[in-house]
Design a protein around this nucleic acid. Structure first.
Length: 286
DNA sequence: TCGCAGGGACTCG
DNA sequence: CGAGTCCCTGCG
């Protein structure tokens, strides 16, 4: 079957660093620098050769309206890295470790459920659970390049119908009831998953934390990867270790204090700093 | 076989 | 309020 393909050049972009950094769980590696991604209700392939990025199948309009925003290709990461690295050797080194990492613009609902699943869980297992949920409760999505069937991430109605038992069978474990609470919260309107909301980051954070199983860390991940609030500084155990090691003289430091520090030092770029630090601390020997 | 990793809820003091 | 315990699964 014929399909269209778009090729663009992008600096500061590395598809491997971007997809495999733990922000996204619905991709498959076809070969080095060649991935299949299921997102935004579509199946898309992305292949990178140097600075050339090929995305297919995609029309000009789909690329412009969906994939360029999704992969955040319109943003000047060079400026972000410069701002973070100014007077900070740690950030300079951390950013140099994953210079092509970009923060994806993901679906809020999928991000919410994915990061509820992420708690007390390792990345490969999170991906396994998210993919099983999609296969069992998502809807089929056409892959114009092949005959294989893929499935979109299921919405709140579908996951609510799955019930605790269905979710548990997908290995969600003790998080099954948290996912049900998220479904109910969204369906009742208690939680809004509107990307263009006028609410402040603090208001959104408080709203998300009403959901059982959503604490500060999960809320911050959803705020960054879904709502794109880059003033958040998601602080998991690794980012906490990195912050303590590099900025607090190796002393155990409370999350609130780390957040105050990040807000002061990184401001609107805090989320990027968190991603660079996460990748950096996990890549160097303890 | 078992110990461990990983956020958050919940209980107890 | 803080400290401790439990939730579930896969991996080494």
């Amino acid at each position: 079957m014929e399909y269209e393909s778009i090729t663009v050049t992008a600096a500061d972009f590395d598809i491997r660093q971007t997809l495999e950094c733990g922000q996204c769980f619905r991709y498959e590696k076809m070969a080095d620098y060649h991935y299949r991604v299921t997102a935004m209700g579509k199946v898309v392939y992305i292949r990178q050769r140097g600075a050339d990025i090929e995305v297919y199948p995609a029309t000009d309009a789909e690329f412009r309206e969906i994939w360029s925003p999704y992969f955040d290709l319109g943003r000047d990461y060079s400026a972000i890295k410069s701002a973070l690295s100014e007077n900070c050797g740690v950030m300079r080194a951390a950013a140099a470790f994953a210079p092509g990492l970009r923060i994806l613009n993901q679906d809020i609902w999928e991000t919410l459920v994915s990061f509820i699943i992420s708690q007390h869980n390792a990345i490969p297992n999170i991906a396994r659970v998210v993919n099983t949920l999609s296969e069992r409760y998502g809807t089929p999505v056409a892959d114009k390049t092949a005959h294989k069937i893929h499935y979109s991430f299921p919405g709140p109605e579908a996951l609510l119908r799955a019930g605790i038992d269905g979710l548990t069978a997908c290995k969600a474990g003790f998080r099954a009831r948290y996912i049900i609470d998220a479904c109910e919260s969204v369906l009742s309107g208690k939680v809004s998953i509107d990307k263009n909301t006028a609410s402040s980051t603090d208001e959104l954070r408080e709203m998300l934390m009403q959901i059982k199983g959503v604490g500060g860390k999960v809320a911050d991940c959803v705020l960054v990867f879904g709502y794109r609030r880059t003033d958040c500084f998601p602080t998991d155990i690794w980012v906490k270790r990195a912050a303590e090691k590099f900025y607090f003289g190796g002393n155990p430091t409370d999350i609130k204090e780390i957040h105050r520090f990040a807000a002061e030092k990184f401001g609107e770029n805090a989320a990027y700093a968190s991603q660079y630090l996460f990748h950096y601390i996990r890549s160097i020997p303890c």
